[in-house]
């Protein structure tokens, strides 16, 4: 069974993703977190197949999340899922080897299916 982690401080965003993932791949197990710190604590334990990560979050933002993963040599694939259309954010994301793509919300259903099928 595939495992996906959602990290987004806005609960509604996680709700949308859970619905879309469940519809595209009902067997996938979803772990959603609105507190990035909590997600980092259980990351190694859950060991998901991929992470959908928001950038703009309080306390620990997406960049700090990625830095922590890098420092811990955790190479789980990450898809950045953000509402930001900033070119600067896109360029910055390329500095992280485990970031597979930079997706802008709302994610397209077909694009999500393609990602899930590749797992």
């Amino acid at each position: 069974m595939k495992k996906i982690m959602l990290v987004d401080d806005v609960e509604i965003s996680n709700f949308i993703m859970k619905r879309m993932i469940s519809k595209a791949s009902p067997a996938t197990k979803i772990f959603d977190y609105t507190y990035p710190v909590k997600a980092l604590e259980v990351l190694s334990e859950i060991n998901p197949d991929l992470i959908f990560l928001d950038l703009n979050m309080p306390a620990v933002d997406g960049w700090q999340f990625l830095e922590t993963m890098k420092d811990s040599t955790i190479t789980i694939p990450v898809y950045i899922l953000t509402s930001s259309t900033s070119e600067l954010d896109l360029q910055k994301s390329r500095n992280y080897n485990n970031v597979k793509d930079f997706l802008i919300k709302p994610i397209d259903a077909d694009a999500l299916k393609a990602i899930l099928n590749d797992l």
Partner: peptide, 25 residues
């Protein structure tokens, strides 16, 4: 630009995502 990119687009993208859910189901 940052305000627009993060703060404005964030709730807007949610609304679009929610409406898309209703389209499909």
């Amino acid at each position: 630009s940052v305000l627009n990119a993060h703060n404005v687009r964030e709730p807007l993208s949610r609304i679009i995502g929610l409406v898309n859910l209703l389209d499909d189901d």
